[in-house]
């Protein structure tokens, strides 16, 4: 079994009285495609925001390799080797595709401000290297033909791909994808699954949140399930799919609830009292 790259231990986050993430422990192993699923509002994106330092946990530890991520500010993460995409696309809409990707490479630049202002040779060399890498990232995602266009002029599916290109150019060890398939059509989803496998094959560990079960079950090595901030299952896709708790979280306890709600209506007359059923006290 390969080593753990990301490790969450007993992580809890409260917003006032609401417990958004409740004692979650999970790990991501080097080289795998790891998925986190769960109903809306289960706390999945919050987990990403905790890992990337947007929120700080009230309790628990998050480790990346040997390093604790507690208290590391967001702008240091890219340098450590963590990159992410967003659930609601957050491109720099008035910048070109090329510029968007170059911002993704920002943490990799070494030259300071003086080098940039006076265009010293080391700066020029570095800019050329970064431009080359930006081209490669765009080409990897099939967007190199449109490098000069503004991000806002791209169709939706390509904006999602551009977000991935922007994350890849920082050459991360761990890539966090927040609902990468959202809003894609079936063809785009198939292409995306292929792309995620190709990213994994380059040696980057992938940790994704996704709603689309076909995508999750098709590519993930292991799947964790979150419901109301708690982890309710974790394992191979096939195991998770069969888990009774997961099925209940997704389909709800609808059957039982339905009955509870309808019974009193039906049983309102005295019959209910006479029947002496468990719900009579209602």
């Amino acid at each position: 079994m390969s080593e753990t790259i990301l490790d969450l231990q007993d992580v809890t986050l409260r917003f006032g009285g609401l417990v958004a993430v409740d004692g979650v422990s999970m790990d991501v192993r080097q080289g795998e495609i790891r998925a986190l699923i769960g109903p809306n509002g289960a706390g999945k994106s919050t987990i990403f925001n905790l890992v990337t330092g947007v929120y700080r946990p009230n309790q628990g530890t998050i480790r990346f390799g040997e390093r604790s991520l507690n208290g590391v500010p967001p702008h240091r993460l890219a340098g450590l080797g963590i990159a992410r995409t967003f659930q609601n696309i957050r491109l720099f809409s008035s910048l070109s595709l090329m510029e968007n990707v170059l911002i993704g490479a920002h943490s990799r630049g070494r030259s300071g401000l003086a080098g940039a202002v006076f265009r010293l040779p080391p700066f020029r060399q570095e800019e050329e290297n970064l431009s080359l890498q930006a081209w490669e990232a765009l080409a990897f995602m099939g967007l190199d033909q449109k490098a000069g266009e503004l991000a806002k002029n791209l169709p939706y599916g390509e904006q999602r791909r551009l977000e991935i290109a922007r994350a890849l150019v920082s050459q991360p060890r761990l890539l966090l994808l927040d609902e990468p398939a959202a809003g894609m059509n079936p063809q785009e989803k198939s292409a995306l699954m292929e792309t995620i496998r190709r990213i994994r094959d380059t040696g980057i560990t992938v940790f994704l949140i996704e709603h689309d079960m076909r995508v999750v079950m098709g590519i993930s090595d292991r799947v964790a399930v979150l419901n109301y901030g708690k982890k309710i299952a974790d394992g191979l896709p096939a195991e998770v799919r069969e888990d009774a708790g997961v099925i209940e979280a997704y389909l709800g306890t609808g059957g039982k609830r339905e009955r509870r709600r309808t019974r009193p209506v039906v049983a309102l007359p005295q019959v209910a009292l006479e029947g002496g059923a468990g719900h009579a006290g209602n």
Binding site: V54, A78, F92, E99, I103, R108, S170
Partner: peptide, 17 residues
């Protein structure tokens, strides 16, 4: 370039480093 990115989405820019 970083300044322009920041003016459009500060949080995303921070996460890019």
């Amino acid at each position: 370039r970083a300044m322009r990115a920041l003016s459009q989405d500060a949080d995303a820019a921070a996460l890019m480093g």
